[in-house]
Amino acid sequence: MTWNNFIWFALPAMACWCGAGTTIYHKRGSTPANWLMLLGIAIFAVFIIGFWMHLERPPLRTMGETRLWYSFFLSSVGYVAYRRWRYPWLLSFSAVVATVFVLMNLMKPEIHSKSLMPALQSNWFVPHVTSYILSYAMLGAATIGAIIQLNRPQGYAPGIFDLIDNLIYIGYGFLMLGLLMGALWAKAAWGHYWSWDPKETWAFITATAYVAYIHIRLRKGTASETFALWMLPVAFVLLIITWLGVKYLPAAQGSIHVY
């Protein structure tokens, strides 16, 4: 299965997700929404597996390939979190964002060659990148929650902080695993676990922002709650810079991570 087949999986998957994201708001819509969401995820998974087999290496190298996983994980995580917490917006937002990333891949496909440079041929490669992408999906979902809450004049949605905090703890766990595995990998590949390369600097910034959120939440009080809520969109902007923006920064000329 090559990149040329992508559109035949992308379109049905997006249709399923958007269908799920809208029917969820209708009375008696929750069963079809559940099935549509799962069907979309399954279609997408089939493409990823086929593409992986075609490439003979995990599709994790180019930006386009990592966006594939982001769509996949965000829809899956959104679905699981919806089943756990029962917020319909969680399902529809993750469906929309997953769709946006599929559209980006359709509009701006990138060259997908089979070659993988020797430094990337490591057992750390797959867990490192998937862990990061999973965490981005979780932290993205938590950010959506925070933004919705910030725009809610009538006070806290019931259980909203429990939801956000759990997503942050889990997302943070994956983020840190990704970072630490990256450090062990860098040690094996380049001789040092941390070189303050621009991508690493931004990974440090992102992790610090979420650790700060975790500690701000240890104290009660409206001021710290509001501050914590505002912290999340800011942290997510930092995350996006780390993930997508680093290569455009003047500070990143000569980074080993730019691809």
């Binding site: 905090d165 759990n166 703890y169 889990i170 943070y172 766990g173 840190m176 695993l177 630490l180």
Partner: peptide
Amino acid sequence: IIMMMLGSVCMLWIGRKV
């Protein structure tokens, strides 16, 4: 690094105890 990796797994596993 290993301790923090285990600590991260704990955070994944436990979430935030409400």
